[in-house]
């Protein structure tokens, strides 16, 4: 763990360089985001299976917990979850194309921009359908 410079006689051996391999290129950030969204979804799933298991306890307890999902703030978090899962799925497809398609590595950067474009185009109507009712009710509209 120490960062001291080892010296052997007159030769100075620098410590191994720490930090990233990509050094901030888009390839690194797409990987960081893939990792974070994967972990986030995994933790959500753990919680989600516990929530859903209440259907086996009683209709009342399940309905009570699912009411929470209709709360405006939680609704916003659902938008975040959907955005994260959608990114992870699209980027996963890109990873598979890089691995299995002979031209994949050549087009990996182009595929990243296409991926982000698709993400945006899907998220715009997605956010609308997920939030429309919440926003309407918040400003006094009918349920």
């Amino acid at each position: 763990m120490s960062q001291t410079v080892e010296s052997r006689g007159s030769v100075t051996v620098p410590p191994p360089r720490r930090g990233s391999v990509y050094r901030g290129d888009a390839g690194m950030w797409s990987w960081v985001a893939h990792r974070i969204t994967g972990v986030l979804t995994f933790f959500f799933l753990f919680n989600h299976v516990l929530d859903t298991s209440l259907v086996r306890v009683s209709p009342e307890s399940y309905n009570e917990i699912i009411e929470l999902y209709k709360n405006p703030f939680v609704n916003l978090m659902e938008v975040g979850l959907v955005g994260a899962v959608l990114y992870h799925a699209l980027n996963g497809i890109r990873i598979m194309l890089i691995d299995f398609w002979s031209k994949g590595p050549k087009y990996q950067r182009l595929m990243l921009w296409i991926e982000l474009g698709v993400w945006f185009v899907v998220m715009v109507p997605g956010v609308y359908f997920m939030m429309e009712r919440t926003v309407r009710v918040m400003f006094g509209g009918a349920e």
């Binding site: 259907v55 209709p59 399940y62 309905n63 699912i66 999902y69 209709k70 609704n75 659902e78 959907v82 997605g126 359908f129 997920m130 009712r133």
Partner: peptide, 14 residues
């Protein structure tokens, strides 16, 4: 769950 027929607002035990 989130988009079709009213999304999360229609989810309940039934």
């Amino acid at each position: 769950m989130n988009v079709l027929d009213g999304g999360v607002h229609r989810i309940n035990w039934g």
